[in-house]
Design a protein around this nucleic acid. Structure first.
Length: 573
RNA sequence: GACUCAGUAGCUCAGUUGGUAGAGCACAUCCCUUUUAAGGAUGGGGUCCUGGGUCCGAGCCCCAGCUGGGUCACCA
């Protein structure tokens, strides 16, 4: 980047960088810097009566500076928080040479620089726990100014809030918005809790293919890619269900995976094209067992994160204390519409839809119609955790038929805050039934249902060898994190949410300008003035360009010697 | 995908029938020195998202586009 593109503050910082080097200070030293304490440890353990922490070594990012002649204060931020530092000139510079204080600390350090200090901890007259610095060393120079966020009495000033910048430059968000880090620490803690619980029970964490020849296990539009050596299409997985069940066939009796899945669909507050799902499969269990297991898991997560089961989500209070309400889908529909659909056929259901104002069309089968009614009239009402069970067979091609009713399946979804959080089955292990269901999906697909599943014949073959009765459950980790951290957007629980690429203005390479005989220094000027392409340049009159160039030179005090009007004319020919 | 709101200094934001581009913080210079977002004084800093149009004149009005937010639709 040429200097002409930089803001004044960036230029000043680059100047400071050079001055530091001139003073023999390496702004990016290589050696290890051994700290022996964190900000949080200092703030929580310092006791002025002992006193402890009299030889601390600390490193962090300089987030504030209050310079006052012979003595200064600053704030350093490490992973655990912020701590004030106190620096006095004559301690840092005991001799005649006061450069380290007057120049380096006061002028050449900037907010954002990472420094290491050693000294002792004390409490100022104002009652602030502070490191009294005996020495400091620059560990990394920051040449781009940070947004300055200030806080007093819980009130935030000049908060860095632009969502676009926060998501695109998450590193910046994390530096200046400490509460953001909390969300991600909770996310990790949540995942660790779940993993711990599964491992305690002897279930095995596995990894299954992300690149799949058949994108099975869910009905969703996949991302497609191509393998060159095999010359075949491959799909990013939309689910890992069929692979985990193959492992149950292979003799594992409990397997789980935290799985990044990919769906080529719309993006909004609750959908990102890549997202995380935890799926677990346990042999010799059924969906009733899995409901108990799921309750236990979620209650455990809530307790680990909040120390209690009742959590505020938006304007609602949600209690994750088990047991959760269990209701069949038919009863749920009866509860909210007053209509008993349990004996109805497709036509009767379509009439119900018309009567209660639920959109439907002729491509919809029985299962889809029921799903629409449930989605429109019931789903949003389940704020407290509720297991909705026994879905119609048409909607659940991988799920075992209900032991008491072949039109239903042994499936449950856990609804929380009006949305689906978990999905679980007594897994279908009858290979002949499975093939029938896949073929039914194919028929639905031909009928126009673009959400129907692909057929995976190898999976059917695996079932033919015999899969033990198994229950499986999948839970959206991003959605669970949103609930547990009271976040309204999936972007707030993903470190790097998907964004459209930043648009960069097209520009011709410098060589093209040089070919026209334009000197390098003037190419930079032209770029800065907005002539990013030769074609733009060709459209302007030489006289105007000449005037503009000289004017720009003068206004910005570039100190260049102006070209001759004739030269400019030559360039444009 | 539809509708809607927004984009102005490094950050947060003002900007009056359309008439010389503003504030606070940050930055620079100087003065002061144990301060709690902000000591004092002075100063520098702008592609008003981009491209068209209307107009004597556009940050402002009109059209198109880009990026983002919100609502809805879609999302077993």
């Amino acid at each position: 980047m040429s200097n002409i593109e930089l803001s004044e503050q960036e230029l000043i910082r680059r100047g400071s960088l050079q001055k530091l080097r001139d003073l023999g200070i390496n702004p990016y030293p290589a050696n290890e810097f051994k700290v022996n304490v964190t900000a949080n440890q200092i703030l929580t353990t310092f006791n002025p009566e002992i006193p402890n922490l009299q030889e601390v070594v600390f490193a962090g990012r300089l987030m504030g500076q209050r310079i006052m002649g012979k003595a200064s204060f600053g704030e350093l931020q490490d992973e655990t928080g912020r701590i004030q530092i106190y620096i006095s000139r004559d301690e840092i510079c005991p001799g005649e040479d006061k450069t380290l204080y007057n120049e380096v600390f006061k002028k050449l350090l900037d907010i954002g620089d990472i420094i290491g200090v050693n000294g002792y901890v004390f409490i100022t007259q104002m009652g602030e726990t502070t490191i009294h610095v005996k020495n400091f060393v620059l560990l990394s120079k920051s040449i781009r100014p940070l947004p300055i966020v200030k806080e007093k009495e819980g009130k935030t000033f000049d908060a860095f809030t632009d969502p676009e910048q926060r998501y695109r430059q998450r590193y910046l968000d994390l530096i200046v918005n400490p509460h953001v880090k909390e969300v991600f620490l909770k996310r990790t803690k949540m995942i660790n809790q779940m993993r711990e619980m599964f491992n305690e029970r002897g279930y095995v964490e596995v990894e299954t293919p992300i690149l799949q020849p058949i994108p099975g296990g869910a009905a969703a539009r996949p991302f497609v890619t191509h393998h060159n050596a095999l010359n075949m299409p491959l799909y990013l997985r939309v689910a890992n269900e069929l692979y985990l069940k193959r492992l149950i066939v292979g003799g594992f009796e409990g397997v789980y995976e935290f799985s990044k899945d990919f769906r080529n669909e719309g993006m909004d507050r609750t959908h990102n094209p890549e997202f995380t799902v935890m799926e677990i499969y346990v042999a010799y269990k059924d969906y009733n067992w899995m409901m108990d297991f799921t309750e236990e898991m979620i209650e455990r997560v809530a307790l680990a994160l909040h120390g209690k089961t009742s959590i505020t989500v938006g304007d609602k209070e949600i209690d994750f204390k088990r047991p959760y309400k269990r209701i069949t889908m038919f009863d749920a529909i009866k509860e909210y519409t007053g209509i008993d659909i349990s004996e109805m056929d497709e036509n009767a259901l379509r009439e119900v839809c018309l009567k209660i104002g639920v959109d439907c069309d002729n491509t919809m089968g029985k299962g889809k119609l029921i799903d629409e009614i449930f989605g429109a009239k019931c789903e949003g009402n389940y704020i407290q955790p509720t297991f909705v069970t026994d879905y119609p067979v048409e909607m659940s091609p991988l799920c075992k038929k209900h032991r008491n009713n072949p039109e239903l399946t042994e499936r449950f979804e856990l609804m929380v805050n009006g949305k689906e959080l978990c999905n679980a089955y007594s897994e279908l292990n009858d290979p002949i039934d499975q093939l029938d269901r896949f073929q039914e999906q194919l028929r639905l697909s031909e009928k126009g249902d673009n959400e129907a599943m692909f057929i995976d014949m190898d999976f059917v073959r695996a079932l033919e060898y015999g899969m033990p009765p198994t229950s499986g459950m999948g839970i959206g980790i991003d959605r669970l994190t949103m609930l547990m951290t009271n976040s309204v957007s999936i972007q707030d629980v993903l470190l790097f949410p998907q964004m459209k690429p930043e648009k960069r203005a097209e520009e011709d390479p410098i060589e093209k300008y040089l070919e026209l005989g334009i000197p390098t220094e003037w190419v930079e000027v032209l770029m800065k003035m907005g002539y990013k392409k030769i074609s733009q340049l060709k459209e302007v009159k030489p006289g105007k360009l000449f005037n503009d160039l000289c004017g720009f030179n003068k206004k910005n005090q570039l100190g260049l010697s102006n070209p001759a009007a004739n030269d400019v004319t030559q360039w444009l020919n």
